[in-house]
């Protein structure tokens, strides 16, 4: 099978420790376009594939700030400009009354940004992916630990890559059709 028709090579590992170890070896060998797959989050795996800082906190913070400002401005505009009413002699902009809703909108928009941001950065939803074509890969959501090197990687070289994966501790290596 020619490389052009391949998405990459998928290697299965025995357990989480072997996967982390294998991922580290693959990265040390200079590969960059590869990813590890596991049925649960594994400590140290993200570092091993060279992915350390996520932008999630920043995304959520921005969402929270937008929610806070928008929430307060909405109440201010409604109560002071669009529909001014005297309620018990309080000032039109009675800020203590506006705190609860401002808090709620802050949390709401921050959570929206958190969830949608996580999905967007992860490129989900993505109904189909070449990996799903490998039958064994169904175990990635049960008890299988996998590592996939894409052909798009600059260092990808068919059999040599396959050999590296076996040396890194893979129990089996599968071709992933494109």
């Amino acid at each position: 099978m020619a490389d052009a028709q391949l998405y990459g090579l998928l290697a299965e590992f025995r357990d989480p420790e072997a996967l982390v170890d294998g991922a580290r070896r693959v990265r040390e060998a200079g590969y960059r376009r590869f990813d590890a797959f596991s049925p649960m989050p594994i400590e140290g795996l993200a570092e091993a594939i060279g992915f350390t800082r996520t932008r999630m906190p920043l995304v959520v913070l921005i969402g929270g700030l937008i929610g806070a400002v928008a929430g307060y401005l909405l109440q201010y505009w409604v109560s002071v400009i669009a529909y001014p009413l005297n309620v018990g002699g309080r000032p039109l902009n009675s800020w203590p009354y506006f705190i609860p809703v401002t808090f709620e909108t802050t949390v709401l928009v921050a959570a929206l940004f958190g969830v949608l941001g996580m999905l967007a950065l992860n490129g989900l939803p993505r109904p189909h992916h070449p990996l799903f074509a490998v039958e064994q890969f169904a175990h990635a959501t049960r008890d299988g630990f996998f590592l996939c090197i894409e052909t798009a990687d600059a260092r990808f070289a068919g059999d040599e890559t396959r050999r590296l994966l076996v040396e890194a501790g893979a129990t089996e290596v599968f071709d992933v059709p494109a």
Partner: peptide
């Protein structure tokens, strides 16, 4: 939604889940 257990996904997922928890508690 096409979840495949990628290590990158897990990393963002865990951060997002923790942040959601941090938001949900005061909520």
């Amino acid at each position: 939604m096409g979840w495949r257990g990628s290590a990158r996904h897990w990393q963002r997922y865990q951060r997002a889940y923790l942040l959601l928890a941090g938001l949900a508690t005061p909520l």
